[in-house]
């Protein structure tokens, strides 16, 4: 028997082995599947899944409620800050107005003083005195 024939026989033998292994694999999966398929099944996994689903929903609800509360608190906080800022602005504006009014009043008084002080110029003083004397007589 030549070496080539030997190798060919070996190859054929291996191919037969592969074919048989694949057939056995198929039979094995079919037998396993049939055995498991006909076995009565407990609903443990479904129960476990529903528990997980419920826990997932609960966690989701808590997170949603937390986000909502956080959002509302943040909005309320922002509104409070805005109110405080508005009040502060109004107070500052009022203060500025008061200061402006006070300054205007001071300026007016200063102007009146100045006007009054110049009502009888020094050059007219002798004439004013004569008029006062005439009235006395």
């Amino acid at each position: 028997m030549s070496m080539g024939t030997g190798l060919a026989d070996e190859g054929r033998e291996f191919e037969a082995k592969i074919e048989q292994a694949l057939k056995d694999f198929r039979s094995s999966v079919h037998a396993w599947s049939e055995a498991e398929y006909s076995r009565p099944r407990a609903v443990k996994l479904v129960h476990l899944r529903s528990w997980r689903v419920a826990a997932g929903w609960a966690l989701g609800c808590v997170l949603a409620a937390g986000s909502l509360t956080g959002g509302l608190y943040e909005r309320h906080h922002q509104q409070e800050l805005a109110k405080i800022a508005a009040a502060e602005t109004a107070r500052q504006q009022k203060l500025a107005a008061e200061q402006r009014a006070s300054k205007e009043q001071d300026d007016l008084l200063a102007k009146v003083d100045s006007d009054v002080s110049r009502q009888v110029p020094s050059a007219m003083e002798p004439l004013a005195q004569l008029m006062a004397e005439d009235e006395a007589r």
Binding site: K17, S27, S28
Partner: peptide, 26 residues
């Protein structure tokens, strides 16, 4: 997984070998 193999008309040795090959395929 490879334990599920119908015995058919094989000898114990053949069955063992077949089971080993199924395990290799897995």
């Amino acid at each position: 997984a490879s334990d599920w193999l119908p015995s058919g008309e094989r000898s114990v040795e053949q069955q063992m070998m077949a089971r080993e090959q199924v395990a290799q395929v897995w």
